[in-house]
Amino acid sequence: MDQSWIKEYSHPLFIAGPCSAESEEQVLNVTRALKNQGINIIRAGIWKPRTRPNSFEGIGHAALPWLELAKKETGVKFAIEVANPSHVEQALKHNIDILWIGARSTVNPFTVQEIAESLKGITIPVLVKNPVNPDLALWIGAIERLLNQDIQKVGAIHRGFSSFGKQRYRNEPLWQIPVELKRHFPELPLICDPSHIGGRRDQIAPLSQKALDLNYDGLMIEVHPNPDKALSDAAQQVTPEAFAQIRQNLHVRRATSDNELFRSKLEELRERINSIDHDLVDTLAARQKAIEEIGIYKKENDVMVFQLERWNEIMRTRPEWASAQGLDRELIEEIYKLIHADSLKVQTRILNEETNDSAS
């Protein structure tokens, strides 16, 4: 995997520009404004995969000459989304510098494979957005399909994951998934798209800071000369002036420190955490033994595994205990959902063993 392309830019890398290329004038205006701020990679949607029909789906290939004109005038590079081999052909024909595969494409291995084959051996960077649904394997698989086609300049874009119902964010960030992706591909450049995660312009700054605190390599932010009149995703775009303010307020922290006192104290605290984690694992093992005994007892008395009243009691009391200790209620709820799912699995296995023994 070749990281040289991202090292050509300052850290963090900024990719900015409108959700959609709407007119030649709009593209030129926003490109000039961003170039004056030192931004050298502009994003612009040419083909827009929309959730429902009859909404603005982009100008299409007719907008590509606008990007070429803006490149010629300002010297910037352009990044666009491609969703099929035809898009790839048109993008390369018009000298697009960076391509990305969108979330709705990443979710389909057949689509990714077709795009990857059309890009075989290409030397420009290709970025992969996370799939719409929270499936790490699909994200990894899309990256591997590119690498299998000898595409070495690969990166990932974290744009959040869809969820049912009204949530705080347009797309839940689920930070643990991109963090796990980085564990699989330590050299993979990772870029955050706070515009699509938040869905509102007031969310962009805190999400951007969170990403930088997690050591992301860059940010992709939607910038429009007149966001309120944008033809797509108006609520999540910011003006060039607002974008400049966001950048100015971001704090880029160091990856580590050479201070010996810091390093010594950090090691001490990590050792303490190691000890606590060991105790936690011992406690979970003791809990599982109790669960196994419950499973055997239920089996002997012909009682079903799932007990709604008991589950309601756990989901009421454990978050209360967490609050009393100053812990996040939602975190404890999620932990106990995982613990309960495993408890059901253990007890079900015990009951099935009884059924198999009876059958024999």
Rank of each mutant, 00 (worst) to 15 (best):
G199P: 02
H184E: 12
E172W: 04
Q149M: 12
E172F: 00
R168D: 14
Q176D: 11
S162C: 02
A142D: 05
Q176I: 10
L119C: 06
Q149R: 07
V132L: 08
I191E: 11
D135Y: 07
V132I: 09
P206I: 03
C192R: 14
T123D: 15
H184D: 07
H196G: 00
K153T: 02
K210W: 15
V128R: 01
T123V: 06
T123A: 04
E187T: 12
E117D: 06
V128A: 03
P131T: 07
K166S: 07
G199Y: 06
L119F: 03
Q113E: 15
N171K: 03
Q152T: 13
G160V: 07
F164P: 04
G155L: 06
L136R: 03
N148P: 05
L138K: 14
K153L: 00
R200P: 03
V154T: 09
I122M: 00
I140W: 05
V128N: 02
S163T: 10
L127S: 00
R201A: 05
Y169Q: 03
D150G: 11
R200F: 09
G160Q: 12
P194L: 13
R201P: 03
S162G: 01
I151V: 15
Q149V: 02
R168S: 14
L146W: 06
N133D: 09
K182R: 15
G121W: 06
K210T: 15
L174C: 02
E180Y: 09
K153S: 00
R145D: 01
V112A: 07
E114I: 08
G199C: 05
R159W: 05
G121E: 04
L146F: 11
G121N: 09
V112K: 02
P206Q: 13
P186W: 14
H184R: 14
Q209M: 12
Q176Y: 09
I157T: 01
N133F: 08
L207D: 14
E187I: 15
P178C: 10
L127W: 01
N133M: 08
K153Y: 00
Q152C: 10
P134R: 09
N148S: 13
E144T: 10
E180S: 09
I197A: 07
A211W: 12
C192M: 15
A137G: 14
E144Y: 13
L138W: 02
T111C: 07
L174W: 05
Q209L: 10
V154N: 00
I143V: 15
V154Q: 00
Q203L: 13
P189N: 11
F164M: 05
R183V: 06
D193F: 00
F185T: 03
I122P: 09
I157Y: 02
T111L: 05
P134F: 06
K166W: 13
P173E: 05
H196R: 04
E117K: 13
G155C: 11
S118C: 09
K120L: 05
Q167A: 10
A211Q: 11
